[in-house]
């Protein structure tokens, strides 16, 4: 017998966690009401229960049958994931503090690190072009309420 697929078990356990959390949180904090007059907790509670139930099925089924899903997910690449998430978080942290133009430069550099073969000169050129482009499109043409650059002091 083949070992059951770890990914299915992980999926099931995640769903159980989400479902139980929603059900318990809704039950504890929101009024349930009756079937005729449902309170705000009614639908989230039962949804949570069904999600947890389906999660249990998904986690247990691989033990019962030897059949495996053959669709392989793409290989896990931590590098682009981290680089892009960090870039987005940097945007969130910086854009109102230092302005859109310097943020664009920083975000471009960080997200360029997602790909192997980082080219400093090319990235610098891209960052400058992009910063100019974004300044023209979003601040000059679309008139977004964001500072172009915030000078220290």
């Amino acid at each position: 017998m083949k070992s059951p697929d770890m990914r299915d078990i992980a999926s099931g356990v995640t769903l159980i966690a989400i479902g139980l959390f929603a059900a318990i949180y809704a039950y504890a904090n929101y009024r349930m009401g009756t079937v005729t007059r449902m309170g705000p907790g009614f639908v989230p509670f039962w949804l949570g229960c069904i999600v947890a139930g389906l999660g249990t099925l998904i986690a247990v089924l691989p033990f019962l049958s030897a059949r495996r899903d053959t669709i392989e997910p793409p290989p896990f690449h931590p590098r682009p994931l981290i680089a892009i998430l960090v870039a987005v978080l940097l945007f969130a942290g910086l854009v109102t503090r230092i302005g859109l133009v310097p943020t664009t430069l920083i975000v471009t550099f960080v997200s360029a690190l997602a790909e192997r073969g980082f080219d400093l000169k090319r990235t610098a050129m891209l960052a400058v072009t992009l910063a100019a482009l974004i300044w023209v499109i979003f601040l000059l043409l679309l008139d977004m309420r964001l500072p172009a650059i915030v000078l220290p002091g």
């Binding site: 892009i84 870039a87 987005v88 975000v107 471009t108 997200s111 891209l126 992009l130 974004i134």
Partner: peptide, 8 residues
């Protein structure tokens, strides 16, 4: 990198 910026 441009798409990352546009998304943000």
């Amino acid at each position: 990198p441009a798409i990352v910026m546009f998304t943000c």
